[in-house]
Design a protein around this nucleic acid. Structure first.
Length: 225
DNA sequence: GACCAGGCACATC
DNA sequence: GATGTGCATGGT
C-alpha cells in the first residue's frame, strides 16, 4: 500500500493501550438486539448519537424493532417516528430498503443473514441502498461480531493530523492499516473504534484542548486554529 | 446564530 | 476518478 505519510506508523496496539489507559472502556453499542444495532447504524449516519437515542426509544415504544414489524410500518409514519435523528425521510427509506432485503433474502431472519461468511455478509450489506462502507462495517463489528475495523470521519482525522496517512487514503486502505497490524479480536476492534471517536471528538478538533491530547507525547495533533 | 454530528447516493465535470 | 450537493434534527 502506498502511504506517503510524513510520520511512520506507530505500533497500533500501543496506541490502543494509551487510548484505553487515558479514556477507559467506552461501552459502545451494547444495543439490546442485533437488529437494534443495525437500525442504529443507519440512524447515526452523520448524526449525533444523542439524537439517534431519541429515535430508537420511539421505535422501542412502538414495538417495531424487528425486521418484519418495522417493514410493516408505513414509510411516512416511520419517518415521523425517527424524526429526531435527522434526515428522517431519507433514513426511513434506508431502513425500509434494509428490511426489504432481509425479507427477500433471509425470510426476515437475522440468524440466517448472519450465517453468511465475512466477505459475503459485507458484500450483501453494501448492496443495500443506503448502507455504505462505514454502516456496513459497523453492522459487521457491532451486530454480527466480525473482526471488521470501522473507519469513520474521526479515524481519518486523527490519522491525518498525526500524518500517519496521506490525505488521499481510501476507506479500505485505512481499514486495512488496522486489520493488518492488530490481532483479529472483535472486542479489541470494538473498543478501538470507540476510543478513536472519543479522541477525535474531544481532542482532535480545532479547539484549545488539542494541547491535552493523550497522544501528544508521541506525535502532536496539529490544530487548525 | 453558526457549527457540528458515529454517511450515503447521485449529478456533474 | 474526483468533487460538489442534498438530506435535517438537536446540542453546544
Amino acid at each position: 500500500m502506498k502511504r506517503n505519510q510524513q510520520n511512520p506508523l506507530p505500533p497500533l496496539d500501543k496506541v490502543y493501550d494509551e487510548l484505553f489507559a487515558a479514556f477507559g472502556p467506552q461501552h459502545w453499542w451494547p444495543g439490546r438486539t442485533r437488529f437494534e444495532v443495525m437500525v442504529g447504524a443507519i440512524l447515526t449516519q452523520n448524526t449525533a448519537w444523542t439524537n439517534v437515542e431519541l429515535a430508537i426509544r420511539r421505535l422501542r415504544r412502538e414495538h417495531v424493532l424487528q425486521p418484519r414489524k418495522l417493514h410493516a410500518v408505513d414509510t411516512a409514519t416511520l419517518a415521523e417516528w425517527i424524526r429526531p435523528s435527522g434526515y428522517f425521510r431519507l433514513k426511513a427509506e434506508r431502513l425500509k430498503s434494509l428490511t426489504t432485503a432481509l425479507i427477500r433474502d433471509f425470510d426476515g431472519q437475522l440468524s440466517r443473514c448472519f450465517r453468511l461468511s465475512d466477505q459475503a455478509l459485507r458484500a450483501w450489506l453494501l448492496d443495500v441502498k443506503g448502507i455504505g462502507p462505514e454502516t456496513a462495517d459497523s453492522i459487521m463489528l457491532y451486530a454480527a461480531g466480525r473482526t471488521q475495523f470501522v473507519v469513520d470521519a474521526y479515524t481519518r482525522r486523527v490519522l491525518e493530523r498525526h500524518d500517519w496517512i496521506s490525505s488521499g487514503a481510501t476507506y479500505d486502505e485505512i481499514a486495512s492499516l488496522f486489520m493488518e497490524n492488530l490481532p483479529r479480536d472483535v472486542s479489541l476492534f470494538n473498543e478501538y473504534h470507540a476510543l478513536i471517536v472519543h479522541l477525535g471528538k474531544h481532542f482532535c478538533r480545532p479547539c484549545p484542548r488539542c494541547e491535552s491530547c493523550p497522544l501528544r507525547h508521541r506525535l502532536p495533533i496539529r490544530c487548525r486554529t
